[in-house]
Design a protein around this nucleic acid. Structure first.
Length: 884
RNA sequence: GCGGAUGUGGCGGAAUUGGUAGACGCGCUAGACUUAGGAUCUAGUUCCUUCGGGAGUGUGGGUUCGAGUCCCUUCAUCCGCACCA
């Protein structure tokens, strides 16, 4: 009765493949459940143990839901455009599609070896012409859509009303006006350029220290013509949509933070001695009385006009330095404030005070208006700057809750107070504004009202999110269905001309100055229209995010060549009920695809406003690593264990065991293929789930696999052996445990608590082994519960129990609550809050009778001395507590 | 600095509404079976103990008959964002 997992797993994987056990039909009469994994980039190194974690979790849910009668969609595919294949092509000349195909095959083989029940007839690949045709089709939709602010809705570009003064100016103005409203537009953009990869990076791909996240080189600023998507138009919708989603709070917050909404006001400051004004954004218009100077960013358009002749040299020098700094010293963390006086003054509208205008790089051009009013009394950055350059500091807020020493300093303008307080110095007879004695909310409201009455400002909302840079100077991506004509006109291909495929190339190197390799494909590149006009195809390609923005929709109808997906099918399957993947996509992929989805929704192409109903992030799987006392990392193959501590094999130096990310340099990477070879796929699946809560970060412990392997062995040896069966009435204890297990495991799967459901199955198995014999009915029910977790082993035993069809098609057993009810309960009895003894009592006993029986117990008498206790607490079916 | 999360045995981790802290597994200890075992099975395993008990869920306090769970305080670790006006 040996557990031959290799044989068993091979047999059932072949069976599933031949019988298409996991094929999903579009049966609209049944309730649907769409469970989705974040599809992988098929890298050359294959799966790591992190992949099967999420995949196993969704597989268990999918199998369980199927057994519960749902029509389940559980597909897999490949996010296959991307740099590594292109890099490999540059090095070897191998076409990326060849590399991609090989990698996909390897991934598919590995995934099938884990017994994951995907419907392979629905496999998608973002690099297939039948797939990216529709990615291009969606791009055309984005191009032909504008966002109606009033309706908060994307609308077809034909419905955009052209204002009269624009149409009067002629065709070109009209075209420009339309272009300014399209969700996709082509324009000069200052972009991040990675000189190493020779590629443009999106803001999201540049790390804090100014390096490219992919290669670690410092990026540079560069001006290039680029495709951009106006995602900020959807900021409000993307923000609102989050509220109704069953997502981890952390992910929602990250998205909110990324969108970065803040409310406040825009205020115009007149520049003294010029007709111009300087506009600023502030979240605290109520602190206008405390604005003692202004600052513009070094890139501000008005800077030149503001700079007086006297200050020109200094300002020019500063701006040049700032530019250099933004390219080289971004990692410089010493945040000392620098800046230069422009020579100009503005008038503070609330008190007609003359205040100096400075230029400083702590003001960012990319946020708000690129200019600020500085309130050094109540803003730490402004305070720092004012102190450094001896600018006046005015307190307008008497601090709440500050000690007297601090209060005195704040009132004297010698310390900064950023919390709430009572307004002081916030009235001016000349301008008529008085907010003294108002609350913060009233102060803000009153000031905005005052500004609006005088046309000096208005309430405003600002977002951090910026237009999405949507093109890359790369070969291995979706080509844009775009032609740039010699007269400057831009046209998009007709739907009927899609897909636009990539040309064959000899060489895949990008140009050194931002030219895509596609620029070398002359015969592909140049086009002529019927009138002989010459045009050039767009040579940029779309970023890798494009394909993953909508893949969940293609699974619904993967072979459709008439439309991206059928409307009826989409209506049935959407939204995704459960989406599982890593937290690294918390912002980018999830925000981008929500954006696309909302546009498609506005255009009536999809039926839901949001794509993913419930999102779950699996925690990363780490591994043990070793470091010396100095913190130097030591590869695992140079470590040995002696008497419970770890030492360096060569030097004998004592080492500490730490937990770290798996990495080649630490030699602690676990390959799922190796685990499958030693313990089998069911053991790997079970261990990945038993390791800990799905969302927790947890280390891989080799010995733990043995634990679950042992469990499966015990299951096999017990349930696959007919001598362990008897016919007749099942032991009540087994029956109770079985029904408890069915209930517990079902509930745990719904809650994604797989670790505790495995514990429960272990408890049940241990009981059965202890009892020695069970009925076949008990075995059948238990094996169905185990099925989603260890499908190969379960199929094997299921078949031995004389079942003809796959266990995947069996129904989930129904538990009977009556087996779970007890007529007696073993009460823990606590005396003064400490457990002293236990007593078995009938559940339906009168409370007087319970009191009597408990107090008669010898241990109770010992503590009470026979006297009546002060209190006697009886919680039915829970606990008894006696206070003496 | 801001936001999110997490602190429980030697280790991974359990503990619906406050109600037996340490389930389940690893490891360890002892025993059985074995030529042998890093196989399998059985028993034990939070710590201290004068064997009556006592202490115990990062720290300190509070509410309660009763707190890992609720409230306040504080420390540590991880993740994300960060000169965002």
């Amino acid at each position: 009765m040996e557990y031959k997992f290799k044989e068993i797993e091979k047999r059932w994987q072949d069976y599933w493949e031949e019988n298409k056990t996991f094929r999903t039909e579009d049966d609209y009469t049944r309730p649907k459940f769409y469970v989705l994994d974040m599809f992988p980039y098929p890298s050359g190194s294959g799966l790591h143990v992190g992949h099967p974690e999420g995949y196993t979790a969704t597989d268990i849910v999918a199998r369980y839901k199927r057994m519960k009668g749902f029509n389940v969609l559980h597909p897999m595919g490949w996010d296959a455009f991307g740099l590594p294949a292109e890099q490999y092509a540059i090095e070897t000349g191998t076409h990326p599609s060849v590399t991609t195909q090989n990698n996909c095959e390897n991934f598919r083989r590995q995934i099938k070896a884990l017994g994951l029940g995907y419907d392979w007839d629905r496999e998608v690949n973002t690099t297939d012409r039948g797939y990216f045709k529709w990615t291009q089709w969606i791009f055309i939709r984005l191009y032909n859509t504008w966002f109606d602010e009033k309706q908060q809705k994307g609308r077809p570009i034909e419905e955009l009303e052209i204002p009269e003064h624009i149409s009067k100016e002629g065709k070109e103005s009209v075209q420009n006006f339309i272009a300014d409203h399209r969700l996709a537009y082509y324009d000069d953009a200052q972009v991040w350029w990675c000189p190493h990869c020779r590629i443009v990076c999106s803001n999201e791909e540049v790390l804090n220290d100014g390096t490219h996240e992919k290669c670690g080189s410092l990026v540079e600023r560069k001006n290039l013509k680029q495709w951009m998507l106006r995602i900020p138009h959807y900021a409000e919708r993307l923000l609102e949509g989050l509220d109704g989603l069953d997502w981890p709070e952390g992910v929602k917050d990250m998205q909110r933070n990324w969108i970065g909404r803040s409310t406040g006001a825009e205020v115009e400051f007149q520049i003294e001695g010029s007709g111009q004004s300087l506009r600023i954004f502030t979240t605290r218009p109520d602190t206008l009385f405390g604005a003692t100077y202004m600052v513009v960013s070094p890139e501000h358009l008005l800077l030149e006009a503001l700079t007086t002749d006297d200050q020109k040299d200094q300002v020019d020098k500063y701006v040049a330095q700032a530019r250099l700094k933004s390219e080289l010293d971004r990692s410089d963390l010493s945040r000392e404030k620098t800046g230069v006086f422009t020579g100009s003054y503005a008038i503070n509208p609330v008190n007609n005070q003359q205040i100096p205008i400075w230029v400083a790089d702590y003001v960012l051009m990319g946020y708000g208006t690129g200019a600020i009013m500085a309130v050094p009394g109540h803003d730490t950055r402004d305070f720092e700057f004012a102190t450094a350059f001896s600018l006046p500091i005015l307190c307008i807020m008497n601090p709440h809750g500050a000690d007297e020493e601090l209060r005195t300093l704040v009132l004297a303008g010698k310390a900064c107070w950023t919390e709430d307080g009572t307004y002081v110095n916030s009235v001016h007879a000349g301008t008529g504004l008085d907010i003294n004695n108002l609350s913060k909310e009233q102060g803000i409201a009153r000031t905005i009202e005052w500004l609006q009455e005088r046309g000096l400002g208005k309430s405003a909302i600002n977002y951090k999110i910026r237009d999405w840079l949507f093109s890359r100077q790369r070969y291995w991506g979706e080509p844009f269905p775009v032609i740039h004509w010699e007269d400057g006109e831009i046209t998009l291909l007709e739907d009927a001309d899609l897909p636009l495929e990539l040309p064959a190339l000899e060489r895949y190197e990008p140009g050194s100055h931002g030219e895509s390799p596609l620029a070398n494909a002359t015969s592909w590149l140049i086009v002529n229209d019927s009138k002989g006009r010459k045009g050039r195809r767009e040579t940029n390609t779309m970023p890798q995010w494009a394909g993953s923005c909508w893949y969940y929709l293609r699974y619904i109808d993967p072979d459709n060549d008439q439309e991206p997906f059928s409307k009826i099918k989409e209506n049935y399957w959407m939204p995704v009920d459960l989406y599982v993947g890593g937290a690294e996509h918390a912002v980018l992929h999830l925000l981008y695809s929500r954006f696309w989805h909302k546009v498609l929704y506005d255009l009536g192409i999809v039926s839901t406003d949001e794509p993913y109903n419930k999102l779950f992030n699996q925690g990363m799987i780490l591994a043990f690593a070793y470091e010396s006392k100095t913190g130097a990392k030591v590869p695992s193959d140079l470590v040995e264990e002696r008497d419970g501590s770890y030492v360096h094999t060569e030097t004998g130096e004592p080492l500490n065991q730490i937990v770290a990310k798996m990495s080649k340099s630490l030699k602690n990477v676990v390959n799922p293929d190796d685990v499958v070879a030693i313990y089998g796929a069911d053991s790997l699946r079970l261990y990945e789930m038993f390791l800990g809560p799905l969302d927790a970060v947890k280390p891989w412990v080799e010995n733990g696999v043995k634990g679950v392997y042992n469990f499966l062995n015990r299951v096999y040896k017990f349930f696959a052996d007919p001598t362990h069966y008897f016919t007749g009435d099942e032991d009540p204890e087994v029956l109770k445990s079985l029904h408890g297990t069915i209930k517990k495991v079902g509930g745990d799967i719904e809650a994604l608590h797989f670790n505790t459901s495995i514990s429960q199955m272990m408890i049940f198995t241990n009981l059965c082994i202890k009892k020695g014999k069970v009925t076949p009915e008990t075995a059948e029910a238990f094996i169905r519960v185990l099925g989603p977790f260890a499908p190969h082993l379960s199929e094997e035993i299921w078949q031995q129990l004389k079942n003809q069809s796959s266990i995947a098609e069996a129904s989930w057993p129904i538990y009977d609550e009556s087996f779970l009810q007890e007529d007696t309960h073993e009460y823990p009895v606590m005396i003064n809050g400490k457990l002293r003894f236990k007593i078995v009592l009938l559940i339906n006993l009168e409370s007087e009778e319970i009191r009597k029986q408990v107090l008669q117990h010898e241990t109770a008498v010992k503590w009470t001395g026979g006297a009546d206790p002060k209190r006697f607490i009886h919680v039915p079916s829970k606990i008894i507590n006696i206070v003496v």
